[in-house]
Structures are given as structure tokens and as C-alpha cells.
């Protein structure tokens, strides 16, 4: 059987690790620190799958029932 990829599951949105400049731009637009974003644990299955490390910021593109598509961010923390 083919290995099941969690990223393809319908409940799992699209993930993308942001580059340094993108994080900087994000902090600027919202006027926040990285830690102020919602978190995601390093042990999270998705983090393991895409190889996110603590300190990374993930951009999450979700399918939203109210806006078709919505963008969110999570800050990767240890644990």
C-alpha cells in the first residue's frame, strides 16, 4: 500500500515555510512579534512532514467555508 500522506488529507490545509524577508514583512504589516502568532508544535505531524523547525513561521492557506480561501500563520515552537 502506498504510504499515506497527511498533507493530502482533506482536513489538512496547505502549508508553506516562510522565508526570512517574508517573516519580516509579516511582522511589519501586523505590528507583532513572531511569538504573538498562534503556535504549532515541532512534534506536530505536519511539522515533521515538511521539516519545520522551532523559529519558523508557517503560512497556512485554508479552504474556508465563508471566504473560499483564507490565510493564517503559525509559529513553530519546540515541544
Amino acid at each position: 500500500m502506498v504510504k499515506f500522506e497527511i498533507l493530502k488529507h482533506e482536513l489538512v490545509p496547505q502549508f508553506e515555510i516562510l522565508k526570512k524577508e517574508e517573516i519580516e514583512a509579516l511582522r511589519h504589516t501586523y505590528g507583532i512579534k513572531k511569538e504573538d502568532l498562534p503556535w504549532i508544535r515541532r512534534s506536530d505531524p505536519v511539522c515533521k512532514e515538511i521539516g519545520a523547525k522551532p523559529g519558523d513561521v508557517l503560512k497556512i492557506t485554508r479552504k474556508s467555508p465563508v471566504a473560499e480561501q483564507s490565510v493564517g500563520y503559525r509559529y513553530c515552537v519546540p515541544g
Binding site: H9, E10, L11, F15, P45, V46, R62
Partner: peptide, 30 residues
């Protein structure tokens, strides 16, 4: 998810903490 013959991408459970464990926090949110 390991069973043959199912569509793993559409499996759903009403146990939210199980989803968090297997599919991650974002899937749990959904």
C-alpha cells in the same frame, strides 16, 4: 488509515484529539 481499500484522504472521526495526534493541529482546528 492503514487499511487497504479505503480512501485515506477522506477518513473522518469525531474524536478531535485523535485528529490532532495523527493529522496535526490545523486538521484539529478544522
Amino acid at each position: 488509515l492503514k487499511i487497504k481499500g479505503i480512501d485515506p484522504n477522506r477518513v473522518y472521526t469525531n474524536n478531535v484529539s485523535e485528529i490532532a495526534e495523527v493529522l496535526g493541529i490545523e486538521a484539529a482546528r478544522a
